[in-house]
């Protein structure tokens, strides 16, 4: 190991941390994975957040501490209370959009590690029994080579537990909100895993929360099979 070798930012590949201190020599694990410039482009979700979905609350689009989108979900008896809450880390801005595209579509698995600490904090904070990835269909999994949700759970230091499978369909990102909500159930419980669900508090992990419909469809399936509660953690909102 070369103690004085430069480290490189995972996101932009620029060299970071030229300065070598005793801390950097002895505590290699605490090294910076993301340079200050990139860190600056990532915007944490801060301030007053929707209690349900974790977005930043905006005036005129809220009732109390819940946003209108979540009210719509919670006023619908079919979806009421299925997803206890969602916690997200960053604003889905143009910079993160590019990072996620590189991670998920170009398949740069290593990028998940850039968010390791934040993901760990959020998943631990959710106090769950199982960390469950949102599954890909077999075709999509082959195409991408890995499941981004599983990669995020591993980066958080967790053990992904696959409970769900997914039937192949059109990409979510090509659909409108109405399309997504009125979608037939695309998830199934993996038959061997039925027993592992009983009474468990489950955290679903995904890259992004857009309308929340993917996560709610998954939550619905898990709750119907005996999960005590289902919440979610996503990188972007």
């Amino acid at each position: 190991m070369d103690l004085f070798a430069g480290e490189y930012c995972l996101l932009c590949n620029a060299e970071v941390g030229h300065e070598t201190s005793w801390t950097s020599v002895f505590l290699r694990s605490s090294r910076t994975q993301v340079c200050a410039v990139c860190q600056n482009k990532l915007k944490l979700l801060e301030g007053e957040l929707c209690q349900r979905c974790g977005r930043v609350l905006e005036p005129g689009y809220r009732e109390g501490r819940v946003c209108y989108d979540c009210l719509r979900w919670e006023n619908d008896p079919e979806w009421q209370g299925l997803l206890s809450f969602n916690a997200s880390i960053y604003h889905y801005n143009n910079f993160l959009k590019e990072v996620i595209a590189r991670f998920k579509y170009r398949g740069d698995y290593a990028l998940a590690m850039a968010f390791s600490a934040q993901l760990r904090e959020k998943t631990l904070g959710a106090e769950a029994d199982l960390l469950v990835p949102v599954p890909l269909s077999e075709e999509r999994l082959y195409e991408r080579g890995f499941n981004q949700s599983e990669a995020l759970i591993s980066a958080a230091g967790g053990e992904p537990v696959n409970l769900l499978s997914r039937v192949h369909g059109e990409k979510q990102s090509k659909k409108t909100r109405a399309d997504r909500i009125h979608l037939p159930q695309v998830f199934q419980i993996i038959p061997d895993m039925v027993e592992s669900i009983q009474g468990k508090r489950i955290v679903l992990v995904d890259d992004i929360y857009t309308t929340g419909s993917t996560l709610r469809h998954a939550a619905k399936m898990l709750r119907a099979h005996g999960a005590e509660s289902v919440c979610s953690v996503t990188l972007a909102r």
Binding site: G107, L141, Y142, R144, G145, F146
Partner: peptide, 8 residues
């Protein structure tokens, strides 16, 4: 270079 668990 980096490593990933490859589904292929």
């Amino acid at each position: 270079f980096s490593v990933f668990p490859c589904a292929r």
